[in-house]
């Protein structure tokens, strides 16, 4: 079982859309996939029409009082299950802080279902906190969507610094950055993308375009890859998944 976390310190960069669509792409290809919505806002949970509720809240899951398998819900798609968000996740930092070995906690929670899934996607809330550190420890790779804007690139630098400064936390974590919500009609997006690519050749080559089809996910409550499987963003998510697989 590989654990992949969609993560960025900054919000609104396409983390949830990435988690939702990549999870759907992987499941459609026959992988057994679990998406854990760690964001208390529950956007990924909403897209899959699942109720954002975990009995006993995040604390029950983290403490082991509630079996993670009991909280999992099947999605409308074969091979794709959801571990829904819960409003109590807003206190996840506090819960982890009170737990023993907080950094190892998320991985430990997932251990009981490790035989059931090939990939687990963690959709994380934006921040650098104890939760994100626990995510860094649990995950095999961070999928980092970056909008080609100055501010977004700055947050990528912050993540880089954190990774450099905390080798004991990140260990063998792979950081897979890629451009998201890229608007090729905007000169600034094109220039910044070129500039950043020159500075960071390790960035994935696939970029997810800014596209109204992605925005329509919220209306139809479906992944864009299910809703418009032949659309430009769907093809981009397919290509992104291929590229991620090559790096794992």
């Amino acid at each position: 079982m590989k654990i992949l976390a969609t993560y960025n310190i900054k919000g609104g960069v396409g983390k949830t859309a990435t988690a939702v669509n990549l999870a759907h792409v992987a499941a459609r290809r026959g992988e057994r996939v679990l998406l854990w919505d760690l964001d208390p806002q529950g956007a990924a949970t909403f897209y899959f029409r699942v109720k954002p509720k975990v009995k006993g809240g995040g604390e029950a899951l983290l403490s082991g009082r509630r079996e993670v398998s009991d909280a999992i819900r099947g999605s409308d798609y074969d091979n794709l299950d959801i571990l829904p968000a819960d409003f109590s996740y807003r206190h996840l930092d506090l819960m982890l802080d009170e737990a023993k070995k907080p950094l190892a906690r998320l991985r430990r929670v997932l251990r009981s279902v490790s035989e059931d899934y090939d990939y687990v996607f963690l959709d994380c809330a934006p921040s650098i906190s104890l939760t994100s550190e626990s995510v860094f420890r649990a995950a095999d790779a961070l999928l980092v969507p970056v909008i080609p804007t100055t501010l977004s690139i700055r947050t990528f630098d912050q993540l880089d610094r954190f990774v450099d400064d905390n080798p004991d936390i990140v260990r063998k974590l792979k950081i897979l950055g890629f451009f998201s919500m890229a608007d090729t009609r905007k000169r600034l997006h094109r220039e910044l993308a070129d500039e950043l690519r020159a500075q960071r050749p390790e960035l994935l080559t696939t970029q997810i375009p800014m596209d109204t089809d992605i925005e329509r996910m919220g209306v139809h409550r479906q992944p864009v890859t299910a809703l418009f499987p032949r659309s430009r963003p769907s093809r981009a998510y397919e290509a992104l998944w291929d590229e991620i697989l090559a790096h794992l």
Partner: peptide, 12 residues
């Protein structure tokens, strides 16, 4: 004969 299959969705 006709076959009717009902598949449970996890959690439901």
């Amino acid at each position: 004969p006709a076959l009717i299959e009902i598949r449970a969705i996890r959690g439901y």
